[in-house]
Amino acid sequence: MIEREFMRGAGPVAVLKLLERGEMYGYEIVEALERRTDGVLAMGQSTLYPMLYNLEAKGLVAARWDESGSRPRKYYRLTESGRTRLATDAATWHRLTTAMGALGLTRCRPAGMEACA
């Protein structure tokens, strides 16, 4: 797990990225974040749900309850604004990690030198 302050910056864009492929419910997002980031972006409910609420408040995601299955689930999906924001944030993150790489903080190197490992 990474520090809370880092999560504030990385968490939302990570969640938006997960939702890019389709809607997901809360537990599914927690699991996916943990699995796909080797636990680096694992977050407890106490962090995730306020984050989802905030994204919803900003209109970046929308939610719906699904009662059709055996267990009721609240699904979140990306909105158009969410999609736009994701594109912007992804570019920013790319520039950031590249810059960090230039400083030797990450394994990414500036374009033309060396790709991210």
Partner: peptide, 14 residues
Amino acid sequence: ERELSSHFTEAIAS
């Protein structure tokens, strides 16, 4: 409350 309960339900189920 419902969403948290739903979350715990999924956790137990998994």
